[in-house]
């Protein structure tokens, strides 16, 4: 008996355990194996990614019209594939991909498509046969936002993490995004988010991370936000940095003051210890 006479179920299972590197070598074993590699699923990989970037090393300084090459790098498993983002090179990659597997699964897959001039359809063609559990989307421009919407539409059953890094969408755009497993808003120097927008964001997304930004919110609205999070059936954790006067206003409204004794319970709060700012500073110093 020869290996290719083994049950189809077994051969497919075997090919799901092969690393990409060995699939490439198996292509060279025999004609039948070359076909088997092409016709079988590559199995599951915990993580993968596709990035675009400009390669400035390709600039010919003697040529004033020379530009940095637009590059695509795709990583899965133990392999990465880097190529110039041109239609004919993409066709070569797609041909190779079609000879390497019929499908592939990823636990998570990152999209960092920072070169706007590379059409999103390039990426969509590359990941066409992919099954992706979780998409990580990095956004720096409005084009990236539109591209991300297309990718989300291509993977409607996946979960998503969005990183707003250099670009803050308009409120309407922000609120029209689908629910994210994680929404990271880390855009520097942007106007404050309104309380109303903030309420909608914490309701929509499981994890909302606002960094280097602020929310225009008074203590009553902050309290409302905390109540919304507490009432949410999803597992939620809130970590907020609040201006001192906002927090004081909230605590006073709950009946807490400087003279409140430790172990006093006031509505939703239990006072563990009552320290002056000087005592707190000394404690911090001791802990350093």
């Amino acid at each position: 008996m020869e290996i290719l006479a083994l049950p189809d179920l077994f051969l497919r299972k075997l090919m799901r355990t092969m690393e990409i590197d060995y699939r490439m070598r198996l292509r060279l074993v025999s004609r039948a194996f070359e076909k088997l590699v092409a016709d079988t699923h590559a199995g599951y990989f915990a993580d993968g990614s596709i990035h675009t970037y400009l390669d400035y090393n390709t600039i010919d300084e003697s040529d004033p019209n020379s530009r940095a090459a637009e590059m695509i790098i795709i990583c899965f498993g133990d392999k990465s594939f880097t190529f110039v983002a041109k239609p004919e090179i993409l066709s070569q990659f797609l041909h190779l991909r079609n000879r390497l597997f019929s499908g592939i699964s990823f636990g998570a897959f990152g999209f960092k498509l920072i070169v706007d001039s590379i059409p999103i359809d390039f990426t969509r063609q590359i990941v066409k046969q992919f099954k992706i559990g979780h998409l990580r989307l990095h956004l720096n421009t409005e084009t990236h936002l539109e591209n991300s919407r297309k990718l989300i539409a291509d993977f409607p059953r996946s979960t998503y993490t969005m990183y707003l890094q250099q670009f803050m969408p308009e409120v309407e755009q922000l609120l029209s995004l689908p629910p994210m497993k994680e929404m990271h808003m880390v855009v520097p120097r942007t106007p404050s988010i309104s309380a109303a927008t903030f309420f909608q964001l914490i309701t929509a997304h499981k994890l909302l991370h606002i960094y280097r930004e602020s929310v225009a919110i008074n203590w009553q609205e902050l309290k409302h936000a905390m109540q919304m999070i507490s009432c949410d059936a999803r597992e939620r954790t809130a970590r907020v940095i609040v201006r001192n006067d906002s927090m004081v206003g909230w605590l006073r409204s709950e009946g807490l003051s400087e003279s409140t004794e430790p172990r006093t319970i006031c509505r939703g709060f239990e006072l563990i210890a009552n320290r002056t700012p000087q005592q707190s500073a000394e404690d911090d110093h001791d802990n350093d």
């Binding site: 020869e2 070598r25 025999s30 039948a32 194996f33």
Partner: peptide, 20 residues
Amino acid sequence: KINGKTVEEMREILQLECDF
């Protein structure tokens, strides 16, 4: 048995001839 092997070693393990 296959992982980590060269193409020649794979052929030997799988008892296959190169027909390319």
